[in-house]
Design a protein around this nucleic acid. Structure first.
Lengths: 220, 220
DNA sequence: AGCATTTTGCGCTGATCTGCGCTAAATCAG
DNA sequence: CTGATTTAGCGCAGATCAGCGCAAAATGCT
């Protein structure tokens, strides 16, 4: 039974935009935040019937970047009329932080590369307002990292405080003060009770995230 | 010149969702947060060609609630497949805080009423996941009010600290501590240099928001 | 004029946080 | 065994913040 409005028209009888999902896939590469570009743009796709936005995002990450098992977060909708020369397209922007190792396969494909995520000259070169998407993504990820230790689980467990702080420095673009960082994060981590093996100097204590879910598992 | 893809198809040849905008119009009524319902639902509309989402939101607020000159904020997209029995519809949810006086005309229409915004029994009675939209809106507005003095300009200027604190109490659902509130907010307000007239007791100092834009003007 | 009322302002205490210098601890290299 | 290295841990000073009690100030009422 197809629904019709008071004019006898179905939903399909009205003009509708195309809906795309675009994802700023961020990672840490060479000590700084980087964004994945495929053919000079963010990976994305048009929404298919019956899909949720998250389904579409996951499909585009798998198909365009070989990335699976992640949990992209919705940012917001970009809808500037002049945004897409092809026509009326809305973009629902997402962000996902992915360990750089998981992007290795994608990066062997022609046209797939990493670019510094907080480099203005990179952002202005992106089509379809995607520079704004990346900027919004960087801001969102930095806020998450200020609040929680490695919330996107880029580090394999267990890890040391130095590794964690190194990661946070790369994400935030500034180095947090050692003691302040340690006090805040230790309260949000679970000690393994063990230390590192080998290496000179006093062995480091090792930690896991509070969540019981393994790092690579999808989140709720 | 109509764009076609590598299959010779235009954007319109592919199935697309309808895109609706729904706005949680929040206000303060009788000392607490309230949400506007029109016919038992949030005001909304389908997106028309050539419109931005903000255009559509403003149009629906004008047509369904008689509200003009505001600046709704985008929350996020709701896309649960079973959300809308009419068919494939995405809803881009927004929130707007509006002085209750500006809703007076709308409230004289049949079927338009205010309901407590943080009352779970109200939220579960809403169609199309709109309870979740209202909950997300309440959370967003409360975060804004924790950070800034009356960011949605519900108070006419100038206002007293007691009026401001009363408004914030209504929005937050809890009364902030007088001195803590005063220290934080005074730093974010502009003193008029004048005090209230009449009334018993020591006259109150009066304040304006930092922004130079009049309260009813739209924001950037 | 005195009192009640209301707001402003602030001194004070205790709590919390940041940043830093420095030592102890636990390794490995020589 | 000694020294170098690296991390852990912490004492401390200074800064900041929250909350409270209370008095001063500025009105209107009687």
């Amino acid at each position: 039974m197809v629904w019709r409005d008071e004019h006898g028209k179905r939903l399909e009888d009205y003009p509708r935009p195309s809906v795309a999902v675009d994802t700023a896939v961020l990672t840490v590469d060479d000590g700084r935040l980087a964004v994945l570009l495929a053919g000079g743009a963010l990976p994305g796709t048009f929404l298919h019937p019956g899909e949720t936005l998250a389904d579409a995002v996951l499909r585009s990450l798998r198909d365009k970047a070989g990335v699976v098992g992640r949990s992209p977060r919705q940012l917001r909708v970009f809808d500037k009329p002049s945004r897409d020369p092809r026509g009326w397209v809305l973009s629902v922007a997402h962000v996902d932080m992915v360990p750089v190792a998981e992007l290795a396969a994608a990066l062997t494909h022609g046209g797939v590369r990493l670019a510094p995520a907080d480099d203005a000259s990179v952002l202005v070169g992106l089509p379809y307002e995607q520079g704004e998407i990346v900027a919004a993504a960087v801001e969102a990820v930095r806020a998450e990292y200020r609040a929680e230790p490695d919330p996107s689980a880029l580090l394999d467990e267990p890890f040391t405080l130095a590794e964690l702080r190194g990661l946070h420095t790369a994400v935030l673009g500034e180095e947090p003060m050692r003691d302040t960082f340690r006090r805040y994060m230790e309260a949000r981590l679970k000690s393994t009770g063990e230390t590192t093996d080998g290496g000179r100097g006093r062995p480091s204590r090792t930690w896991r995230r509070m969540s019981a879910i393994p790092a690579a598992a999808t989140r709720g």
